[in-house]
Design a protein around this nucleic acid. Structure first.
Length: 430
RNA sequence: GGUGGCGUGUCCGAGCGGCCGAAGGAGCACGACUCGAAAUCGUGUGAGGGUAAAAACCUCCGUGGGUUCAAAUCCCACCGCCACCGCCA
C-alpha cells in the first residue's frame, strides 16, 4: 500500500514508476479521484455526526415541553448520519481497492523494463569446466538423494522426496544457514506456513500473483510461498520501539507455490516445485536505513553462496519484474553446468513501507535532540532476503559440484554439517 | 469439539445507557529538591482522520452487525484468551 501523501503531492513520481514497470498509469488517476471522494465523504459525515451529537446532548437537558421537538430533530439527524456513514464506508472501500491496485513506487535506480531488462552488477567465479555434465536429477538419482517419481506418485507433479544424503543435505544447509543468521544477529524463528487472509494481503501476495498462492477455502487460510509473509505479519498492528531497530529475523518454514502458468518450465527435478523449505532473512528498519540494509542483505546472501563455492552473478531486477511490494530487487543467479546458464537461487527485496503500511506496523521514538522528550510515531521499512532456498540449492550443488564419476564435491564450509564428508558418492549395494 | 469465565490506553485496573478518550495506579518524559542519585513533590504522557499548523471537531474500549435521540456500557454473531471435560502428535 503506497503512501497517499506521495500520491497527492507528487503524482508524477507514481506515474513514472508505473511506466517503468510497464503497468497501467491510469490507476494513479483513479487513486487520486478515489482519495478525493473519500475526503469529501469523510468531512460530510464528520460534520453531520457533530451536529447529531449536539442534538443528542440537547435531549437530555430539554424540558418536558421542548422534548418532542428536540427528539425529532435528533432522530432526523441520526438518519442523515446513517446515510452519510454508508457513503463514507463505500468511499473508503473504493479507496482501499484503488490503493491496493497500485504497486510500490519503483526505485529510480531499478532498471526500467521487463524480465529481460535486468542489469548484471557482478559476476563471481568462473563456471567450472564439466565435460558432458549430468543434470541434478541424474546425479540425485545416482546418489539416491532425490526421488521425484515417488514424489509424483504420492503428491503429484512437482513434488519430491529427499532421501539418504539428500535429506542430510537439506538439514546441513538449513543448519548452516541458521548458524550464519544467528552469528549475524538475526533471531532464529520457526514460522507457521499457514496464515490469515489479512496477513497474506498485507504482504502484497494477493495482488497480481494471487493465482500463485494456495488457499484453504474451508478454513480461510493461505499457505505461504515464503516465510517472509509470517515474519512480516509477526509485528502486524504493533508499534515497535524505534530504539530496537533494526529487528532482524531468520525464518525457517516450508514454502508452497502453485506454479500456475509455468507449465513446461523446469519440469525436471527440483528446481521448480510446489513445496520446498527455506531460510529467509527479514528486517524491520528505519526508513532512512532501508537502502543500506538492502546492501547488507545482499552481502550476506553473497557470502552464503561464496561459502558454497558457487559461481554466480548478481542482477539488478528490472522494474517490471519486481513484484508489487518491492522498489528494488537483487537476484543471485548461480551457474548450472548442465544447463549452461545462470539460474536464480536467492533474491532480496526492499519493500520500504509498502508492507508495514498495510500491516499497520510503526515505530515509536522519543524526540531526537533538543525536543522535549515527546514521542513520535514513524513508519518502518521492511526488507527480505533469501539465505537458502533448500531444494534449488541442492539442485545447484549437485549440478555445479559434480565430478566426472558422478560423485559430488562438498564445499568446505558445508562439511562440518555433513559429518565431515568431503565428497558425496552413491551408497554401496542396492 | 463441549461447558463456564473473560477481552478497556505501554502495562495493571475501574466504569456496565448520557460532556467517558475513558477514574486510580504503574511505567515513561520533563521540571523542582540534590554535589549526584534514590525517595518525594509538580507537570505532561494513546492512535488515526478531515487539514499544513493552533483552537475547535470526528473516529477508535477484541472484530462485525443490531437496538436507541444517545453504547465501553444492552442484544446477536464471530474471533481470541483462561479454566475444566473430551480427543490427539
Amino acid at each position: 500500500m503506497i503512501d497517499l501523501k506521495i500520491v497527492r503531492e507528487n503524482p508524477d513520481l507514481v506515474r513514472a514508476s508505473q511506466r517503468a514497470r510497464g503497468a497501467d498509469e491510469s490507476l494513479v488517476d483513479a487513486l487520486i479521484s478515489a482519495d478525493e471522494a473519500r475526503r469529501t465523504a469523510v468531512s460530510t459525515a464528520d460534520r453531520l455526526r457533530g451536529d447529531q451529537k449536539e442534538a443528542s446532548r440537547a435531549v437530555r437537558s430539554a424540558s418536558d415541553e421542548e422534548r418532542p421537538a428536540v427528539l425529532q430533530r435528533a432522530r432526523t439527524l441520526a438518519a442523515a448520519v446513517k446515510e452519510a456513514e454508508a457513503d463514507q464506508t463505500a468511499a473508503e472501500e473504493a479507496l482501499r481497492a484503488a490503493q491496493l491496485a497500485v504497486p510500490n513506487i519503483a526505485s529510480p535506480e531499478a532498471p526500467p523494463g521487463g524480465e529481460d531488462d535486468f542489469v548484471t552488477i557482478a559476476t563471481i567465479g568462473t563456471p567450472p569446466e564439466v565435460a558432458n555434465p549430468r543434470d541434478h536429477l541424474e546425479i540425485g538419482t545416482l546418489l539416491k538423494a532425490i526421488d521425484t517419481e515417488r514424489g509424483a506418485k504420492v503428491s503429484g507433479a512437482r513434488f519430491y522426496f529427499l532421501t539418504g544424503v539428500g535429506a542430510q543435505l537439506e538439514l546441513a544447509l538449513v543448519n548452516m544457514a541458521m548458524a550464519k543468521a544467528d552469528q549475524l544477529g538475526f533471531t532464529p524463528v520457526i514460522a507457521p506456513a499457514l496464515v490469515k487472509p489479512e496477513i497474506m494481503e498485507g504482504t502484497g501476495f494477493l495482488g497480481a500473483h494471487a493465482a500463485e498462492v494456495y488457499r484453504l477455502a474451508d478454513d480461510e487460510l493461505y499457505l505461504v510461498g515464503t516465510s517472509e509473509v509470517a515474519l512480516a505479519g509477526y509485528h502486524s498492528n504493533e508499534i515497535l520501539n524505534a530504539a530496537d531497530l533494526p529487528l532482524r529475523y531468520a525464518g525457517f518454514s516450508a514454502c508452497y507455490r502453485r506454479e500456475a502458468g509455468s507449465y513446461g518450465k523446469d519440469t525436471k527435478g527440483i528446481i521448480r516445485v510446489h513445496w520446498f523449505d527455506k531460510v529467509e532473512m527479514f528486517s524491520y528498519v528505519r526508513v532512512e536505513d532501508a537502502a543500506a540494509e538492502h546492501q547488507r542483505l545482499l552481502t550476506w546472501e553473497r557470502e552464503f553462496l561464496d561459502d558454497l563455492e558457487l559461481t554466480y552473478r548478481v542482477i539488478d531486477v528490472a522494474a517490471g519484474d519486481l513484484g508489487s511490494s518491492a522498489i528494488r530487487k537483487f537476484d543471485l543467479e548461480a551457474w548450472f553446468p548442465s544447463q549452461g546458464a545462470y539460474r536464480e537461487l536467492t533474491s532480496t527485496s526492499n519493500c520500504t513501507t509498502f508492507q508495514s503500511r498495510r500491516l499497520n506496523i510503526r515505530a515509536r521514538s522519543t524526540g531526537d535532540g533538543a525536543t522535549d522528550g515527546r514521542q513520535h510515531i514513524e513508519p518502518v521499512a521492511t526488507l527480505n532476503g533469501t539465505l537458502c532456498a533448500v531444494a534449488r540449492t541442492i539442485a545447484c550443488l549437485l549440478d555445479h559440484h559434480q565430478q566426472p564419476d558422478g560423485s559430488v564435491y562438498v564445499p568446505k564450509a558445508l562439511r562440518p554439517w555433513l559429518g565431515g564428508r568431503e565428497v558425496l558418492t552413491a551408497p554401496a549395494g542396492k
